[in-house]
C-alpha cells in the first residue's frame, strides 16, 4: 500500500507532470510565471486547493453521485465544489492570516479556472483511485504544478537578458521553453520502471 502511494505521488508530480504531459494549467504557466516568488505563491495555493478538491470530490462522487445514480451531474458538481472551495479557502486565509492573504490573495480567484484542478478530479475518477490514493494524487499533482511553474519562472527571469527574435517575444518563446521542459521531463520516464 505504501509503495503504491509513493508511486502515485511520483507519477503525478514528475513522470506524468500535469503541466508538461497533460497540458493542464498552461494559462498560469504562460501568464503568471514571470517571477519565481509569485510562482511559488501560486503553486502553494494551487497545491492546497488540489489536495482539498481531490478529497472532497472523491467523497461526493463515490458516496453521493454513484450510489444515487447521478453521475450525469458530475461536471456540474465538480466545478461547483472547486469554485466554493476556492472561495472558502480565500475567506479562511483572510480571517486567520492576513499576511498569507496578502501574499496569495491575488492568485486565489485565478485558481477556479485553472484546468489542472478540474482535470485532476476527472483523472481521479477515470483511474478509479481509492480515497488515500486520491489525496496523494492531488498533493502530487500540486507539487508537480509548482515545480513546473517555478522552473518556468526561473527560465523566464533569465530570458529577459536573451536576444529573442522579435515575433517570438512573449507567448511564442514561453511555449518553446515549455516544449524543452517537456522534453527534459520525458527523461524521468524510466524512474518508476523499478
Amino acid at each position: 500500500m505504501g509503495k503504491e502511494l509513493i508511486l502515485v505521488f511520483i507519477a503525478a508530480s514528475i513522470t506524468n507532470n500535469f503541466v508538461l504531459t497533460y497540458f493542464l494549467g498552461i494559462c498560469p504557466l504562460i501568464g503568471v510565471s514571470n517571477k519565481i516568488e509569485s510562482a511559488v505563491g501560486l503553486g502553494l495555493a494551487t497545491t492546497f486547493v488540489m489536495t482539498m478538491a481531490a478529497t472532497v470530490t472523491w467523497l461526493i462522487y463515490n458516496k453521493i453521485l454513484v450510489p444515487f445514480d447521478l453521475v450525469f451531474l458530475q461536471y456540474v458538481t465538480f466545478i461547483m465544489v472547486i469554485a466554493s472551495l476556492v472561495q472558502f479557502v480565500e475567506m479562511f486565509i483572510r480571517k486567520t492570516s492576513p499576511q498569507l492573504y496578502r501574499a496569495l490573495g491575488i492568485f486565489l480567484p485565478l485558481i477556479t479556472t485553472n484546468c489542472a484542478i478540474l482535470g485532476l478530479t476527472l483523472f481521479m475518477v477515470l483511474r478509479n483511485y481509492g480515497f488515500l490514493e486520491s489525496v496523494v494524487f492531488g498533493l502530487g499533482a500540486g507539487v508537480g504544478f509548482t515545480l513546473a511553474l517555478v522552473l518556468m519562472a526561473g527560465i523566464r527571469e533569465e530570458l529577459v537578458f536573451a536576444d529573442v527574435p522579435e515575433p517570438l517575444k512573449g507567448t511564442g518563446i514561453s511555449l518553446i521553453v515549455a516544449g524543452m521542459l517537456a522534453l527534459a521531463f520525458m527523461g524521468f520516464g524510466g524512474i518508476i520502471s523499478g
Binding site: T21, F23, L168, T171, L175, I176, G179
Partner: peptide, 18 residues
Amino acid sequence: LPAGAFLTLGLLVGLFNI
C-alpha cells in the same frame, strides 16, 4: 508528444506575429 505541441504552437504564434 507533448513537447511537439508546445514547440509547434510557439512557432505558429511567431509566424502569426510575422
